[in-house]
Design a protein around this nucleic acid. Structure first.
Lengths: 341, 341
DNA sequence: TACGTTGATGTTTGCGCAAACATTCAACGT
DNA sequence: ACGTTGAATGTTTGCGCAAACATCAACGTA
């Protein structure tokens, strides 16, 4: 592969002049610049990223971290974010690095990726509350940001969607339809996001004077299967809920399957809501009433924040985006004479 | 960050001894080795990947390339493959690099990633037939492999699923159920995979003496929307097909929605089949009869093949995996007195 | 005793790039 | 005519690592 030296020779200049041209430094006569540029073209020269990195210029790689395969497969949102992020990053010459950090190894040491000079920055998706590796990153002052997370113990930049607003909007909608006995299926309760949505569900319930009843709350893990199970479990309770709030679409999709298997009608017998507005949400029957997470804006915000962290000039920031309520066909009015408070 | 030098100083040896320990070279007294190892631990030393790369040792990065955002979002299979691949690669110390190459830029020059020393090898997913960038990679002798692709013009290693077997199995199943008028909705016909499935559909039809009728063939693009449209279009034809073969699950899912909107029963009025067996296939109602692509084995094969290409010791290979037919609820017997041949 | 042999360790060198510093040369003012 | 200035370009150096080569002590053997 051609190096700066080769280009320099061909253009009859020193390689330093080549370097200046490549990096758009001023102080090169335009005639010389032209000569260098044609040499570059003729030799198909591309600067060697490894040498640049070694020279202290960073890797121009941003790592996106996930804990294990299953995590990704059960979170369509994650992938879409990767792609969205990649598209924003590549505009600024960055590349996306995908890395899993397995719990099995025990280490979970994300700082390694920095020390090995594999990435300049990291994006951590939905870490568990008080995650150790996140703490360590913060302690070492490494540039990273968190999506779908939040911490009281550590300071970092993060992007999230307003769960408060999202869940309360859903609850008010169901209240307006006359529902009072409303069940809830949570995501993986190790994650802040799941905790927040769950807490908000409970708060809204109490705000209208309906007591929280743990018999119609099911702890899921975001998966289709857990949605299926959750629906089965809650509908089996007596008195059964007339509506169930699911913490993501995927679980709500599982619920639709369960309803079919059980011969329960949605929304005739039970209303359900999802969260995320994934692609399938509007293609399933009945189309899912759900809370849209503005994925494109999340991707944009993530790119902006991580780039900000990189040049270190700014403080930690948080960006809270607003979800958008999508009313479709999975909710109906509560049956007259619904269950008493 | 600690360098080999720092470790060497602390262990009171030359940095070359450190290098030997780090790379597990023989010829270091075990006593010295121990001393070096503790110094490494104490200083939290990690070898600098950039320096190694500069030194001619490669990047240990494998790039996964996609053309644009929409491509990924409409191919759940792609993502799952990324994750699956990452898990196999990381066992051997490799990392996954995600890169889009946009058509807009016009360049489409994947060799850049090599020249810039960003990756050691590339995985190309479902390129269009005779894709220019693939040709260039091959011409330059760069290590890459293709998934869901195949070329007569260029030689390269690739992994694919036996479309021949898959489609013919589906067709025979439908024939056995008494279907004779069978429609087809293709994927993006620029891709080899879509072409193959389509060709096989036609061949099977003719093999049993049923003529190919282009009025019940719809050209889709793998997306939910195109499946929806395809179903609408085909069911509207007279005489309507009693079964429709979709080239992937996603489009079949779109069809289920369309059937509902049209008041057509699946499988009562029309039988449908998918392809891929994505997660949702078994959770939709009716559960989709489909052809499972053994994703885990694809991931494994991709990892193996690309690693083989890297050390250059082997010839180009191709791995054709067998799909597995999953019979579920989306097909039924053809109505008695079905449409004449 | 002198000398090769072997195992353990150290030194030199260069991978490609760019900051920091050095040099050259033409244009200008006095 | 001559020093001064500044724009344009060149040279040195080091980033961290490891191959290739060099050294050196300890040992066995003739």
């Amino acid at each position: 592969m051609a190096s700066q030296q080769d280009v320099a020779k061909r253009a009859r200049v020193s390689f330093m002049t080549v370097s200046r041209v490549v990096n758009n430094h001023p102080g090169v006569k335009s005639e010389t610049r032209e000569r260098v540029l044609s040499a570059i073209r003729e030799l198909a020269y591309y600067p060697n990223a490894a040498a640049r990195t070694l020279n202290g210029r960073g890797t121009r790689n941003i790592g996106m971290i996930f804990p294990h395969k299953e995590f990704v497969l059960s979170r369509p949102f994650f992938i879409e974010l990767c792609v969205e992020l990649e598209s924003h990053l590549s505009d600024t010459g960055y590349h996306l690095f995908l890395g899993s950090v397995r719990k099995e190894t025990g280490s979970l040491d994300l700082t390694v990726l920095f020390k090995e000079r594999k990435v300049d920055g990291l994006v951590i998706f939905a870490p568990e509350r008080d995650d150790e590796s996140v703490k360590r990153l913060a302690a070492e002052g490494l540039p990273f940001i968190v999506v779908h997370g939040r911490s009281d113990a550590v300071e970092y930049s993060y992007v999230d969607i307003d769960n408060e607003r999202g869940v309360s909007r859903i609850m008010r909608y169901l209240f307006d339809l006359g529902h009072r006995r409303i069940g809830f299926v949570s995501g993986n309760m190790e994650e802040v996001n799941a905790q927040d949505r769950s807490a908000c569900y409970r708060r809204e319930l109490e705000a209208v004077g309906v007591g929280f009843d743990e018999r119609i709350v099911h702890t899921g893990d975001w998966s289709l299967e857990s949605g299926y199970e959750g629906f089965r479990a809650l509908v089996g309770r007596a008195p059964a809920p007339s509506a169930i709030v699911f913490s993501n679409d995927q679980m709500a999709l599982g619920a639709i399957k369960a309803a079919h298997d059980l011969g329960v009608s949605i929304p005739g017998d039970v209303s359900i809501t999802g969260y995320d507005d994934i692609k399938y949400a509007s293609f399933v029957v009945p189309a899912l009433t759900t809370m849209r997470q503005p994925l494109d804006r999340v991707g944009e915000a993530v790119a902006t924040l991580i780039l900000e962290r990189l040049d270190g000039r700014s403080e930690c920031r948080r960006v809270i985006l607003e979800p958008e309520f999508k009313i479709r066909d999975s909710c109906g009015p509560a049956r007259a004479g619904g269950s008493p408070p």
